[in-house]
């Protein structure tokens, strides 16, 4: 079992008038190599759950286990190291740094690590080749098309060889053919052994044969657990 949560709750602005329970006692398990879609209406807590699973924030109560280790109370530097070494994150808005070149953009996650600049560059180029972007390496991120930006964002998520790839509404800004491209890339990654967690509204994703399991959130609670 790769990821596990137990009675996971997240309350924003606790103790203030605008207190809001975004997640309520969510318990779930994710196995190595699974591909899971996370569905639910807007505001149901998908992004909140993903950020907890991806070690970006800490729960108000409950526990998250990664690889058998509780991570919910880890100091920030250890959470950051986990994010860097085991998770790849694909954001809804790509989140590239506009006036940095493609290769520099995707190198960012590895800079604080122990690899030398040459090793980082080599890894970056191999990831770019994998995604058909090698010829764009020196171009600035803001000069790319939407589809290319999306692939750069994926390249950045992949550069650390992550065990888990987490995507938050990756197709929200993409047209039909780009969505297909993305799904092909994700399928290839899944075939390569990666665990996928995708939050989405898009039927094209959760009906795709790649997805083995769908988890639905409603007002911060799990609605049901469906087998594929």
């Amino acid at each position: 079992m790769l990821l596990k949560t137990e009675h996971l709750s997240k309350i924003y602005n606790r103790g203030r008038p605008d207190e809001l329970t975004a997640l309520n006692a969510v318990s779930l398990e994710v196995h190595t190599g699974e591909a899971i879609a996370l569905c639910g209406p807007s505001g149901s807590g998908k992004t909140t759950l993903l950020s907890l699973l991806a070690c970006m924030s800490r729960p108000t109560s409950g526990q998250v286990w990664f690889d058998g280790k509780s991570i919910s109370r880890l100091p920030e530097r250890f959470l950051a190291a986990l994010r860097r070494d085991h998770f790849g994150y694909i954001f809804q808005q790509f989140n590239l740094i506009r006036d940095l070149s493609v290769i520099d953009n995707i190198s960012i996650p590895l800079l604080p690590g122990t690899l030398s600049p040459q090793q980082i560059r080599k890894r970056g180029m191999s990831v770019l080749e994998q995604l058909d972007l090698a010829d764009k390496a020196k171009q600035k991120a803001c000069q790319l098309s939407g589809g290319e930006q999306q692939r750069v964002a994926i390249a950045r998520a992949l550069i650390g060889n992550p065990q888990v790839i987490i995507a938050d509404e990756p197709t929200a800004h993409l047209d039909h053919s780009l969505t297909n491209d993305l799904l092909n890339i994700l399928s290839a990654l899944h075939a390569g052994g990666a665990t996928l967690l995708i939050a989405t509204h898009d039927p094209a994703i959760y009906h795709h044969p790649l997805i083995q399991r769908t988890i639905t959130l409603h007002n911060g609670s799990l609605a049901d657990l469906l087998a594929p």
Binding site: R77, A80, R84, D85, F87, I97, I108, P109
Partner: peptide, 19 residues
């Protein structure tokens, strides 16, 4: 705002406050 956004990205992809 641009810089703030950049720092958010850095932190999200695995940088810590010290970095």
């Amino acid at each position: 705002a641009d810089e703030k956004r950049e720092i958010g990205i850095l932190k999200a992809v695995g940088w810590n406050t010290g970095d």
